[in-house]
Amino acid sequence: MVTVQKLINEEGLRVDGRRLDELRPIRMEVGLLANADGSAYIEHGKNKIIVAVYGPKEAQPKHVSLHDRAVVRCRYHMAPFSTDERKSPAPSRREIEISKVVREALEPVIFTEYFPRSMIDIFIEVLQSDGGSRCAAITASSLALADAGIPLRDLVVGCAVGKVEGKLVLDPSDIEDKLGEADMPIAFIPVLGKISLLQMDGMFTEEEFIKALNMAKEACMKIYALQKQTLKEKYLQVEKEVRESLTLKE
């Protein structure tokens, strides 16, 4: 039996109680994997994603290396237990596509020309999936790259805007993505003012598209502030502890 679910109620709130222009709760962490050169973890709504960055390192296999810059490789992978129904661990068509678009979203900010003939590997593992996992993956990957000490022009932020029951909604969740009319994920580079990922499922009118783009950019700036805070937090924490132990001694 099919139940018709209203995605936006009379008060203008969505199924998870958010307003139309409200982000889901986001939590980020960096440097949690000891064996990776850089790592990050993000919880964006129900998304739980862990990212590991290795490199720059010697290109392996040798023939993929480029003489003037580093090769960036990216693997987006969903754990078999990350979805409602068990997902085959083999890379699906969708995962291969996301691996490519995430790589292309991140490459413009990396100074790859500093490390000719080398390679940078990005491994994205989705532990639990929700709507907008590619955006969360981009947000976390740029944190992991920064944590690895790879020179970057800026951090990249991902965010999506969807259309549900004729209204634009920011950061659609899984159900809004599946039942809604449109979904547009973007990746934004704040300093350069550039968009490095722009995809769309469904239909927007021209006005809706412009409005959606501005909504997404605005939300990206909010996530960007969180990203910067996350990167600094670990070091500020150590500083606080040291200062405290010093005052205790005195």
């Binding site: 920064a146 020179p151 970057l152 022009r153 951090l155 300093v191 910067k228």
Partner: peptide, 8 residues
Amino acid sequence: QLVTPGEL
């Protein structure tokens, strides 16, 4: 002071 990539 602590800065992050892309900070002015």
